[in-house]
């Protein structure tokens, strides 16, 4: 993938999209093959170290800290990244660099009005936004979004999609999504995964025109 790319990974259910992300981020270990990030072999790197190397992900099913507030959650990630995560003496919020960045992220992800509520009581759309915000707060160069729009009700959807499209250009994004509107409006390159293997790879209009893709995937979509 190229720097700053907007890459979408699509494929029917069970094609191995999430498994692919799990392999990239180190949740699962590959049985064969190596994983490279910016030319560096990271196959044996631990998950939390891969984050430091500039790769962050979101989860298909929300994985949030339900007892914290959005402000605390983001503050946690930011201070973790700025290297003060193991700092056990300083009170959070005394460094202005940290505070500024927290504010920036909260506003970018439209979380200001709920930032002091417990995460567990947030509406689903806001939780989804926080899910991306946490990954984004790691300042990744590569951001992996695993079905960010899944299950978000129509009313809250627009805010979410606008936020995703407004992600800064220097962040490379790999998007896994079933929502074809989002995929085709967002991605500049699309890969289709079927049964764990790369099936088609190309620009959105090429992929959309590809008869084989239509057959295995888009065809199904239309009938379903």
């Amino acid at each position: 993938m190229e720097k700053g790319a907007r890459h979408a990974l699509i494929g029917p259910n069970g094609a191995g999209k999430t498994t692919f992300i799990n392999l990239l981020t180190g949740v699962l270990r590959p049985t064969a093959g190596r994983i490279f990030l910016e030319g560096r072999d990271i196959t044996d790197t631990l998950p939390h170290e891969r984050v430091r190397l500039g790769m962050a992900r979101t989860f298909q099913i929300n994985q949030l800290f339900l007892d914290l507030t959005p402000l605390e959650s983001i503050g946690l990630v930011v201070s973790e990244r700025l290297g003060s995560g193991a700092d056990w003496w300083r009170v959070i919020g005394t460094k202005s660099a940290v505070t500024d960045e927290i504010v920036e992220i909260i506003e970018r992800f439209h979380l200001a009005d709920v930032m002091l509520d417990r995460v567990a009581v947030l509406p689903y759309g806001k939780q989804r936004l926080l899910e991306i915000a946490l990954a984004f707060a790691c300042r990744p160069r590569l951001l992996l979004l695993d079905e960010p729009a899944a299950g978000v009700p129509e009313a809250e959807r627009h805010e979410l999609l606008a936020t995703i499209e407004a992600l800064p250009a220097e962040v490379t994004v790999l998007l896994i999504e079933h929502d074809m509107d989002l995929v085709f409006s967002f991605a500049d390159r699309i890969s289709v995964l079927v049964n764990g293997a790369l099936f088609v790879d190309g620009a959105p209009d090429e992929v959309a025109r590809d008869p084989r893709v239509k057959a295995v995937y888009l065809g199904e979509e239309v009938h379903a």
Partner: peptide
Amino acid sequence: RAVKGNPLRAAAIGI
């Protein structure tokens, strides 16, 4: 507290 709440995500944000 993050580790207690969700160890999987805690690792995923670099802890």
